[in-house]
Design a protein around this nucleic acid. Structure first.
Length: 882
RNA sequence: GGGCGCUUAGCUCAGUGGGAGAGCGCCGCUCUGACGCAGCGGAGGUCGGAGGUUCGAACCCUCCAGCGCCCACCA
């Protein structure tokens, strides 16, 4: 039951940790397949196991949690799947940096010992992010935590590989790939980030090998000339016609290479002649292959010059670039150097400039999977929200290329391919084969590489549910309901999950994909620790509460924006909202009297107009908020709740209820019930966004059941919408505001009651009679007289209008005249308004083409403006006569 | 080079065909018995620019500018 005294200021810190522990202990987060209920599932985009919660995670997980909590309250059997990713390169890099501090490299430890070091790291730091997610209030099923290197998950990854291999979709080949010379591994196209940088274009002279003319080529990479195998020109390029078929000498090495013609050379670029270096450039690689040219390589795996460049051996490629340019200059072969703006690809894990490099790698042919994925998206089996991301995904799928899935790392899923020591035969198998089928040999060597982390991530919805086993979870929760993520991983992760879902289960892994905005700092820059622009969610949670952070993020999460500018101030603002609600709860708590509202039969109550009004507004809010959660309009949900709580419940209903409670009117019992009922219903609507506050209020007030979080969700009943009462309340509010405004203009203090005369026609007079005590209280009216429209107006007086109702405050003439400007301003506005409306209504085309109801509405407005003007003029005239 | 998004009050953003809105900030007035993390009253905008469609445009179309993001093998 209710606590006796509630603290005046809401303190989220202790409340939040206490409630979370209680929910967790009660098992509310657990997901157990229940045939009696329909399933609803969402998969957490697996954070890096070495990672800590940043503001992007906070947003991402908050949104998932909102949906999960919403569906849970609605009675669905909810699975919110947590887990962490071994994150191959990232994690290996972290541990390697640790080793470097001890002066060690991973080779010094050897593979097994190194892996053990990484495991030790994971055991030590791997659960930090889980604790942080708990503090944020995330309601996932912690009993189902999955790590991508857990044995069952590992098995699923190998199973997937073996199946794809046996289907002939995985093959090994020597191709040019993106190579990170620092990580010393291949990476996929998607793991390369491009950046514009200032560089140079070097124009280098290649002398003729015979007695023909020289040729000048432009290059960004003079250091690779040692691997040149040709110079190419366009076949139609008149300038170089006679050169084709001749030989030129590669500078510094004086090796003769042919001049070839190829249509892929663009005559308008550089000099129209280009050096061909198949070992270091993708286009050159293709051209070289088509012309049967050899492949030379002048860089090693670490990006250093090799023996092909004798005087530069061991130099880093960038150092070599300058030295080679200088050497060319000394030999008079450097024609000129131009500044050049270009884009370089960088490793997305360590930001080293990547090198196009020819290596043996494993590739996955994804063409068919991509085609099926595109079809699934096209036919709406998977829907993107906002819808515009559909096109983005489809375009990528259409131009898809083979996926390099091998990585030269030690941390990850080791590729399950075995090479026979005897005959070199290759077998894909989850366990070491027994005897070689070809030669009978029994000595096998496993492929040393591991799989791309994204290969295992792509299995996330399958492997977490038990695939390849046909588990109950898989049958019940697959396909999941929605995936919530950032646009940055649509290709890397989202599309690939769909591919694997279709490939292995012939069913998409989720129905909806919701792409939320990316959080930036207040200046629009990327949140980054190194830039000092990051917001640490844990710091702000300690300061303002998890609820405040959640609400702040949610309220700025609109479909229109793809970025969200965010700073701490916004969280601080929300804290006041939480405090507002808390104090409304204190008010309700204090006023409940002796009757337990949970035992009240609502049908037995006598409702006043304020009760009917707030219940009508609540109904609209239930509809708006429910719809907003259903359609991923998170900002709309937050906004609706904010307005309802603050503007309608607190500012108007709660204030009006004070009148009934103080006077113990016959509606007081209903008021007590409605105060309580509306607040608790609102807390249910708010629970997905601010679960702690909602539950704290729930527990502080009389309630049934142990928790709010298991439902029920507020039931919508459109019959509770009362248009007429809403209109009446609108008029009442206008009157209150008008009197308050007059009071302010007159410089009246709160204790200076005024005498107000209301001149209203029958229906309105009836309404004001009914609402008289509220008007007196809210507008501080000491004496209120309700008079017919034909009664004489007092003079001198101040005058205001609420609709067509005239509000007069009898005053001294001098006081009245202080309001002169106010009335003049309103008159001017009314005249302008009438001119605008008249112009519109006199336009025959408007009358003819606009919908009749619009015409009628405009006529009505004109009539009202005229009436108001007349009333104001009559008032002013009378005032002048005084 | 192609594509997407944004441009509305000092700041952060709602509004997507019929009278320009919110929060914060700002200016007044209130130590009012839920809340000073408050209440009440105000000021503040030619809705990026130019055309067009329409009876009517912040909203639809075209072009332009600025900012941001994604994709693309121009030496």
């Amino acid at each position: 039951m209710a606590i006796q005294e509630l603290p005046k200021v809401y303190e989220p810190g202790s409340v939040e940790t206490r409630l979370y522990a209680a929910w967790k202990a009660a098992g509310y987060f657990r997901a157990k397949p229940d045939p009696a209920r329909s399933p609803w599932a969402v998969m957490m985009p697996l954070p890096n196991v070495t990672g800590e919660l940043h503001i992007g995670h906070a947003l991402n997980n908050t949104l998932q949690d909102i949906l999960a909590r919403f569906q849970r309250m609605r009675g669905r059997c909810v699975l919110y799947q947590p887990g962490t990713d071994h994150a191959g390169i990232a994690t290996q890099n972290v541990v390697e940096r640790e080793l470097a501090k001890e002066g060690l490299r991973r080779e010094d430890l050897g593979r097994e010992e190194f892996e053990e070091r990484v495991w030790a790291w994971v055991r030590k730091y791997g659960s930090i992010i889980y604790a942080q997610l708990e503090r944020l209030g995330i309601s996932c099923d912690w009993d189902r935590k999955v790590f991508t290197l857990d044995p069952p998950y590992y098995d699923a990854v190998l199973e997937a590989f073996v199946r794809l291999y046996r289907k002939g979709l995985i093959y090994r080949g020597k191709h040019m790939v993106n190579w990170c010379p620092r990580c010393r591994t291949a990476i996929s196209d998607l793991e390369v980030e491009y950046e514009e940088v200032d560089s140079h274009l070097w124009y280098v002279r290649y002398r003729s090998a015979g007695d023909g003319p020289d040729v000048v080529v432009a290059t960004q990479r003079p250091e690779t000339i040692f691997a040149d195998v040709a110079v190419a020109v366009h076949p139609d390029d008149e300038r170089y016609r006679e050169l084709v078929g001749k030989e030129v000498l590669v500078p510094l090495t004086n090796r003769p290479v042919p001049v070839i013609a190829d249509r892929r050379v663009d005559p308008s670029l550089g000099t129209g002649a280009v050096k061909i270096t198949p070992g270091h450039d993708p286009l050159d690689h293709e051209i070289g292959r088509d012309h049967g040219l050899p492949i030379l390589v002048t860089l090693d795996e670490g990006g250093r010059m090799n023996e092909l460049a004798p005087k530069f051996v061991g130099l880093d490629r960038f150092e070599a670039r300058g030295r080679v340019a200088r050497a060319l200059e000394m030999q008079g072969l450097l024609v000129r150097t131009e500044p050049y703006r270009t884009r370089v690809g960088k490793c997305d894990r360590c930001h080293t400039v990547i090198e196009p490099y020819i290596t043996d790698q494993w590739f996955l042919d994804v063409r068919d999977m991509a085609r099926r994925t595109a079809e699934a998206i096209h036919t709406g089996r998977v829907r993107f929200h906002p819808e515009r991301w559909t096109r983005v995904a489809l375009d990528w799928l259409e131009g898809i290329r083979p996926w390099v899935i091998s990585r030269q790392l030690w941390w990850g899923h080791r590729i399950p391919v075995w090479n026979c020591a005897g005959c070199g035969d290759r077998v894909a198998s989850k366990v070491e084969p027994f005897a070689c089928e070809r030669c009978g040999g029994r000595t096998w060597q496993q492929d040393p590489d591991v799989l791309d982390t994204w290969f295992s991530s792509a299995l996330w919805p399958l492997a977490t549910l038990g695939w390849p086993q046909e588990t109950e979870d898989l049958r019940y929760f697959y396909p999941t309901s929605v995936l919530v993520t950032d646009r940055g991983i649509i290709f890397l992760w989202v599309c690939r999950m769909i591919m694997f879902g279709l490939e292995f289960l012939d069913e998409v892994p989720f129905r909806d994909v919701y792409i939320h905005p990316t959080v930036h700092d207040i200046h629009g820059r990327r949140m980054s620790k190194s830039l000092g622009t990051g917001i640490d969610p844990m710091v702000v949670i300690e300061k303002y509460g998890a609820d405040a952070l959640r609400f702040a993020l949610t309220s700025r999460c609109s479909a229109a924006q793809q970025d969200m500018r965010f700073d701490e101030k916004m969280i601080a603002d929300v804290r006041t909202f939480a405090n507002k609600i808390w104090n409304a709860a204190r008010f309700v708590h204090r006023n409940l009297a002796s009757e337990d509202p949970t035992q009240v039969d609502p049908a037995s109550l006598r409702y006043g107009m304020p009760e009917i009004w707030i219940l009508s507004r609540l109904e609209r809010t239930i509809q708006a908020v429910t719809r907003a959660y259903e359609t991923y309009e998170f900002d709309e949900a937050a906004r609706s709740l904010y307005r309802f709580v603050w503007d309608e419940y607190c500012d108007w209903y709660l204030e009006m209820s004070k009148v009934d409670l103080a006077a113990e009117k016959d509606t007081a019992r209903a008021a007590r019930y409605v105060l309580w009922h509306v607040l608790l219903e609102t807390m249910r609507l708010l629970h997905p966004i601010m679960p702690f506050l909602a539950e704290a209020v729930f527990r502080a007030l009389p309630h049934q059941g142990d928790t709010l979080m298991l439902g029920p969700w507020p039931r919508s009943d459109p019959r509770r919408v009362h248009e007429e009462v809403e209109r009446s309340m609108g008029l009442f509010q206008e009157a209150v505001r008008e009197i308050r405004s007059l009071r302010a203009d007159l410089g009246l203090g709160p204790h200076q009651g005024v005498h107000v005369q209301v001149f209203a026609p029958g229906a309105e007079r009836e309404l004001f009679t009914q609402l008289q005590p509220y008007l007196q209280s809210l507008a501080r009216v000491e004496r209120l007289e309700l008079l017919p429209v034909d009664a004489p107006r007092p003079h001198p007086a101040a005058m205001g209008l609420a609709g067509s109702v005239e509000l007069y405050i009898p005053l001294e003439a001098a006081q009245s005249r202080t309001l002169w400007n106010r009335v003049q301003r309103e008159l001017e506005a009314l005249v302008r308004e009438q001119e605008r409306l008249t112009r519109k209504l006199q336009n025959p085309e408007f009358r003819q083409k606009a919908p009749p109801e619009v015409v009628r509405a405009e006529e009505e407005k004109l009539w009202e403006a005229r009436t108001r003007e007349q009333k104001l003029r009559r008032y002013l005239e009378a005032l002048q006569e005084v």
